[in-house]
Write a protein that binds this DNA or RNA. Structure first.
Length: 587
RNA sequence: CGGGGCGUGGCGCAGUCUGGCUAGCGCGCCUGCUUUGGGAGCAGGAAGUCGUGGGUUCGAAUCCCGCCGCCCCGACCA
């Protein structure tokens, strides 16, 4: 492709509003252009990278035995009502009605496709002989995100690979899951991403086990905990807190006292007001576990983990209680709950770290008052201690004697063991070998294609621009004739361009009649892996200059036979990615 | 949904507090000459409903009220 014939609107300055590297670089390098919040046009360069990622995903899905199909983005709302997810998705589900002659039909744009595919399978699979099967598609998904942000990382419309496995047995599901898990590892490896597979909650989608594939990046929206020693990795919702010493500090108990704390209800306000640290405080949270109130005690500097609370309460749903219930349980307005003297008898569960707090500060179950010198055993009792809080940086690892570290991360993929949630709701059953009717067991597996591209850029760039691995690069080689008005230079560039194209190399020729500096800056910005400079002097001496984007120094190459050498270099890098890997491992 | 910021040629910004002449600057774009290995120089030129609706005023980019859009933090979230 000739630079002048395609469309690469690069920008010298950072557009207003872009703050994180991937967003800034995608805009500046002319990969994307914003249409509105959460919706971007993919320009030619961005689209090529996106297609590369898509193709890698497709190849690995096919290699893992998954079968591609394509479902419509539009589907009848009734399908979503049958699974109960109209309510679960809420405003995230984009729905509207269409006029058809004299009727109206209610439809939704798919935020994911469990319902559609399960309905398909319910109609067409009826025997254990037709399984296992894994079906997938690569298609645009729609989600009305409350707050789209970070450029292309969170948008209301995005390209997703979604796969669904259908098995006759749990062992079958485990096998299908493993196949997808391994395929995901190969995909992210090939895309040049440094990733971590972390244990995850299955969330509202239901099911039993799941892993998220995370790319560590300071601007990621997700939080993961990772033990460098044993490799334990989990997202924050899931991460367990390892064993630790629960002995109390050697401090003598103080008498229980009620102190006025007018207007101070949050941990921060109270600790400032009373001059204590959040660590000395115990917060008392009133939750509704399947509509039954419970009191949860968490040390002031920790955050409650609803998943852990839900499991402790053996409830299917938990949520913070509304103000009326809090008032009822504590006898005080919101913000002054405490474990001592609750108005209503409710189960009290405490996080394990609560047992080490002596002379704690808690709410007094009275407006504008807190208690100091609160001590476990003497002043209050709990029904059970359990791991109820979010893990934090430096917590003991649950699997070994080391500690876990907290990292921000971008979620690029997710694999779930779904079980029978959707097959049951939508009647996807089969006859087994014993002629018994059974429910199909499902798994589902998603990859955000746009996020692959954004995560790569987010984690692989320098001050001058993007650094693509050859696998995702919009073009593999950039030819840079410095002076296109110089006839021999231009001729050499054109010859090389044609030879490389004939050899199947994806090559971009910067044929613009502009100064060398402009071309070099743009070359670094768009980050094509191999840059070939053709200069007046070089042509005279029969030489070319070769530089991988991640190298500092350029190499020289005889002009004679250059195309063959470049073709071989590209072929080797495509096959092994060893030069890119070497750079990434050293940086 | 709560908090904060922003909206002025294609892009980045100044001007707004303290209303006043023809709305400026840099980049980009067009023409010409010179230049040609890291975002060139000179000369000339095109391009702006100052987000939008209303109000105050002799006069509004500037002051007041409403609305819209964009970005960030929080809440929320496969």
């Amino acid at each position: 492709m000739l630079w002048s014939k395609t469309f690469i609107p690069t920008m010298k300055e950072t557009p207003e509003g872009a703050e994180i590297p991937s967003h800034i670089l995608m805009l500046r390098a002319g990969l994307i252009s914003q249409v509105m919040a959460g919706a971007y046009t993919y320009l030619p360069l961005g689209l090529r990278a996106l297609r590369k990622a898509e193709q890698i995903v497709r190849q690995e899905m096919d290699a893992a035995g998954a079968i591609e199909l394509l479902m419509p983005a539009l589907s009848p709302l009734s399908l979503w009502e049958r699974s109960g997810r109209v309510a679960a998705f809420g405003d995230v589900l984009i729905q509207f009605s269409l006029k058809r002659q004299n009727r109206k039909i209610n439809v939704a744009l798919g935020p994911t496709h469990e319902e559609v595919i399960t309905d398909l399978v319910a109609h067409h699979i009826s025997s254990y002989r037709q399984m296992p099967i894994t079906l997938y598609q690569i298609q645009t998904k729609f989600r009305n995100e409350e707050r789209p942000r970070f450029g292309v990382l969170r948008t209301s419309e995005f390209l997703m690979k979604d796969a669904y496995s259908f098995d006759a047995s749990l062992e079958g599901l485990n096998h299908s899951y493993q196949l997808m898990y391994k395929a995901y590892c190969r995909i992210f490896d090939r895309c040049g991403l440094k990733y971590l597979a972390v244990e995850a909650e299955s969330g509202p989608i239901g099911g039993e086990a799941s892993h998220e594939f995370m790319v560590l990046a300071p601007n990621g929206e997700d939080v993961v905990l990772h033990c460098a020693e044993c490799g334990y990795a989990a997202n924050q919702e899931r991460a367990e807190v390892g064993a630790r010493d629960f002995s109390k500090p050697n401090v003598s108990p103080e008498p229980l006292r009620q102190v006025p704390t007018p207007g101070a209800s949050t941990i921060e306000q109270v600790s400032n007001f009373l001059g204590c640290t959040p660590k000395q405080m115990i917060k008392t949270l009133i939750y509704l576990a399947d509509d039954r109130p419970v009191a949860i005690l968490i040390r002031g500097d920790h955050d409650a983990n609803e998943g852990k609370i839900r499991r402790q309460c053996r409830a299917s749903t938990v949520g913070l209680a509304p103000p009326e219930v809090i008032q009822q349980v504590t006898g005080a307005p919101v913000g002054f709950a405490g474990p001592v003297g609750l108005a209503q008898k409710v189960p009290i569960f405490a996080d394990r770290d609560v047992q080490c707090v002596v002379n704690a500060v808690t709410g007094a179950n009275a407006a504008d008052a807190h208690l100091t010198g609160v001590n476990l055993g003497r002043d209050f009792a709990v029904d059970a201690f359990a791991d109820l809080r979010n893990a934090v940086d430096g917590d003991p690892c649950p699997r070994c004697s080391s500690v876990v570290r907290l990292h921000q991360a971008i979620e690029v993929g997710h694999v779930f063991k779904l079980g029978t949630k959707y097959s049951e709701a939508l009647g996807a059953t089969f006859l087994d070998a014993n002629e018994r009717q059974q429910t199909i067991i499902m798994g589902c597996y998603g990859i955000g294609i746009n996020r692959i591209v954004a995560a790569l850029i987010e984690t692989c760039h320098d001050d001058n621009g993007i650094i693509w691995p050859i696998s995702l690069a919009p073009y593999e080689v950039l030819l840079l004739p410095l002076n296109v008005a110089h006839e021999p230079t231009w001729q050499a560039a054109q010859d090389l361009y044609q030879q490389l194209q004939a050899a199947g190399v994806e090559v971009l020729l910067d044929d613009r009649d502009c100064r060398a500096g402009v071309k070099f800056k743009d070359a670094d910005l768009i980050g094509i892996p191999l840059r070939v400079v053709i200069s007046e002097r070089g042509v005279k001496d029969g030489k070319l200059e070769l530089k991988w984007r991640w190298q500092r120094q350029a190499d020289h190459l005889p002009l004679d036979g250059a195309s063959q050498q470049i073709t071989e270099l590209i072929a080797d890098e495509r096959r092994t990615a060893r030069r890119f890997r070497e750079f990434r491992n050293s940086s």
